[in-house]
Amino acid sequence: MATFDHDAALARAGANVSGFWGRAAFLARRYPLGAAGLLLVVLFVVTAVFAPWIANRDPFTTNARASLAGPGGGYWLGADFMGRDMFSRIVYGARISLAVAAGATVLGFAIGIAIGLAGGYLGGWLDLATQRVMDIMQALPLLVMALVMAASLGPSLQNTIIAIAIALVPNVARVVRSSTLSLREQPFVEAARAAGLSELRIAVRHVLPNTMAPLIVLATAQLGSAILTEASLSFLGLGVPEPHPSWGRMLSESAAEYVRTAPWLVIFPGIAISLTVFGTNLLGDAVRDIFDPRERT
């Protein structure tokens, strides 16, 4: 008969954890992969924010004599066809990726929450109509939807953000709607109504905050796909235009052509995209486990 060590079990469950750093250390031990993901995401955000201090050269300055210079020497990660420093371009590229990921997620979530909350809470024809529109939008894969949107809006950083945001809307709207449908039948909503609060206030102040857990999970999961979608759009020539240094477009410029002669142009931007998305995915998994213990794997 095995003995049960209560103290060890309590420690594993985090019973004696206190303070911000204590909790952080506990979570890091419990979700090592998530902690690694968070580290990568922090690294990415820091790179984006402090790009001018991190980059050792100007990412836009061309230099014909340094065209396709190899890594090492003055150009840590080599130079592209126009002699622009790859390291600096990748560092500045983090800004584009961050702007698109954060911008598209915030915008897409704002629209999706408004639609899902209104439809789920008010129900009736509004719900029916918005649901059918979401059906239509979901009939296209994310990338195709973003591709068509980006094409119809025209290439610019702002339009790329809008295109990806719109492609994210249906998912968000569905998640908010399904939570709202069950929440609006809860006694606390009835209580709020009995207290004389307006429907708008009940929906926004009482129902919405309760849908946050699945939304946070979804948002972390969507960050990575927003970054990947931007990279794909830019790779196809329908995303962020020149002169912005987008990781995806760096790959399309260098694609096939320089595979033989300048492999660093293919390798480094790809590593930047993959590491960043990998980080958000690791973080997303941990966030899902923390917020939704039923899904714990």
Binding site: L251, G270, F278
Partner: peptide, 14 residues
Amino acid sequence: LSGLSLPSFWLALL
């Protein structure tokens, strides 16, 4: 997870 993180066009280029 890395499979979900690698852009497929980059994998193709590699």
